[in-house]
Every structure is written in structure tokens, then in C-alpha cells.
């Protein structure tokens, strides 16, 4: 060993430096899980529609929220926690009952011919004084009602939750339970 080797630079502290940077980024990272309730607004009507389609009272699930954040569903005072079940019962409907929506026989791929689809519409109206929190709760419960029913149907028909189905299967279920939440212009009574 005649040749003197250069002393190697100690790389041991490299890890420390990298760790320091790593921890900085770990701390500053905001894994912004940005999510929320996605809704589609109705387009502005070009001109005032004259002949609005008639909708029968029994096909409409009326949800009203007043400025005191109280909930009135089909004329009855209700708590937010009860809304989901009530909405589900309404959406599924029952041919034996007069007060629940009518059915329309529709041909749906994968579901068969003349599948009875209920003509449900949920009408939501709030006051200008309603708190946003309450509004979101109500919206959430209504969306949840649809999602629950879609999952249930997915499980009985295709043996999987709605999200795990194929595109065609999802479309079929969407046709059975179309999300129809109509928002009326808010009133302004108690601001």
C-alpha cells in the first residue's frame, strides 16, 4: 500500500440534512383533501317559461327550512336525523300507497323491460335567514338518501356497492334512482 488514498468525505450527516428537509416538507404539506357536496345548478331560463310541466302533489317531497333552522317535511316538523329515512321511503315509493309517488314503467338496460321507476322529485326551499350549516346538513341527508338506495340496489342486483360497479351498471341504477333535487328560490321572511 504505497499510494495514500484520499480520505473519504463522511456522508453520514447527509441523512441528517435530508431528514431535516423531509421534516420541513412533512410539516408544511397540507394534504388538501378538498371535497364537498357536488351539485349542478339549473341553467338560467332564457325567457320565463309559460307552460311549466304539471307535477302532481304526491310526486313531490317538500322540504322547507325556515330562518330558525327548523325543518318542515311534507307538512311535518322533523329533525335532520329523521330526514334520510323519510326521503328514502319516499324515493322508493310503494304501489300500495296513495300518498307516495307514482311509477313509470321504463325500459332500462340490465334491469329489464318495464321496470317501475318512481316519479319522485324532492323540492327544497330555504329561507334567506337559514344558516349555511343547516342547509348543508339537509342537502347532505338528501344526497345520502339517494346514495343509500343506490348502494342497496347495487347490492341486490349486482352484489356490490354503487361505487364498485361498472359504468353500465351505474347508469342503470342511476336511471332507477335519478337524483332529482329541485331548489326553489328562497323566501325572505325572517332575516
Amino acid at each position: 500500500m504505497a499510494r495514500r488514498e484520499l480520505p473519504e468525505i463522511n456522508a453520514g450527516s447527509m441523512a441528517d440534512i435530508a431528514f431535516l428537509l423531509l421534516i420541513f416538507f412533512l410539516v408544511t404539506t397540507t394534504m388538501d383533501t378538498d371535497g364537498g357536496l357536488t351539485r349542478k345548478l339549473p341553467p338560467m331560463p332564457e325567457e320565463q317559461l309559460e307552460d311549466l310541466p304539471e307535477v302532481k302533489q304526491r310526486n313531490v317531497f317538500e322540504v322547507l327550512v325556515n330562518a330558525n333552522d327548523q325543518l318542515l317535511v311534507e307538512g311535518q316538523l322533523m329533525l335532520v336525523s329523521e330526514l334520510r329515512e323519510a326521503a328514502k321511503e319516499f324515493i322508493v315509493s310503494n304501489p300500495a300507497r296513495e300518498d307516495l309517488p307514482e311509477f313509470k314503467l321504463t325500459d332500462i338496460e340490465l334491469m329489464g323491460k318495464d321496470y317501475p321507476v318512481s316519479k319522485q322529485i324532492i323540492s327544497l326551499q330555504n329561507d334567506r335567514g337559514t344558516s349555511y350549516e343547516m342547509y348543508i346538513k339537509v342537502q347532505n341527508e338528501l344526497v345520502a338518501a339517494y346514495n343509500d338506495l343506490r348502494d342497496e340496489l347495487g347490492n341486490t342486483k349486482f352484489g356490490a356497492n354503487f361505487d364498485d360497479l361498472t359504468e353500465e351498471q351505474r347508469d342503470a341504477i342511476k336511471e332507477v334512482y335519478p337524483q332529482r333535487i329541485s331548489e326553489a328560490e328562497p323566501k325572505s321572511i325572517g332575516n
Binding site: T33, D34, G35, G36, L37, T38, R39, K40, L41, P42, P43, M44, L79, V80, S81, I136, K137, Q139, N140, E141
Partner: peptide
């Protein structure tokens, strides 16, 4: 004509009254 909206919310397990 900006129709696709998203009400930003946090996630929770259960809605309370």
C-alpha cells in the same frame, strides 16, 4: 353559466341535529 358547483365541506361520520 358556471353550473358545476361544489359546496366545500369537511368529512364526518355522522350528522348531528
Amino acid at each position: 353559466n358556471a353550473l358545476k358547483i361544489n359546496y366545500s365541506t369537511m368529512e364526518t361520520d355522522k350528522i348531528v341535529d
